[in-house]
């Protein structure tokens, strides 16, 4: 389903603060989420508890959905984190963080661990 993705920085899901108090798996469970209106979610997945794969022109990421009725119906919100960075990008020297076209689909894949994401970066080291 085509939606718009916006990143936010909400304290409840804030990686910067939570990283100092949670274990790596707890952090993933809390932060690697996308906020979506339940009506929108029900149009995408046939049952609750299914992870969502978000794909933009910049990349893709699998996240755990969190229902939030304050989210507009045509949107998905993702808190800024190492996970959200997989689907944001740069156009003409400017970072794109809001209103990014995104394809959202159900996924059987698990949410990646922070270590997996970092290992990809470490492999780039010379």
């Amino acid at each position: 389903m085509k939606l718009l993705l916006s990143t936010i920085r909400e304290f409840e899901y804030d990686q910067k603060s939570l990283i100092n108090e949670l274990s790596e798996s707890e952090l993933k469970n809390k932060v690697a989420v996308c906020l979506i209106h339940p009506e929108t979610y029900n149009k995408i997945a046939s049952r609750s508890g299914v992870n969502l794969k978000l794909t933009t022109n910049f990349g893709s990421v699998v996240l755990r959905p969190v229902w939030d009725e304050s989210i507009p119906l045509d949107m998905v919100y993702v808190n800024k984190s190492i996970w959200s960075n997989q689907v944001t990008g740069v156009i003409e020297g400017r970072i794109q963080l809001k209103n990014i076209e995104v394809d959202v689909e159900p996924s059987e894949d698990s949410v990646l661990d922070i270590s997996d994401l970092l290992n990809t970066l470490k492999e780039l080291k010379g």
Binding site: Q15, K16, F58, G59, K80, S81, I82, N85, Q86, T88, G89, V90, I95, Q96, L118, L121, K122, L124, K125, G126
Partner: peptide, 15 residues
């Protein structure tokens, strides 16, 4: 690395 798109954090990681 937590705040920038992966296209930028990849470049940071290389150096």
């Amino acid at each position: 690395i937590s705040n920038l798109p992966v296209t930028l954090s990849s470049e940071l990681s290389k150096k």
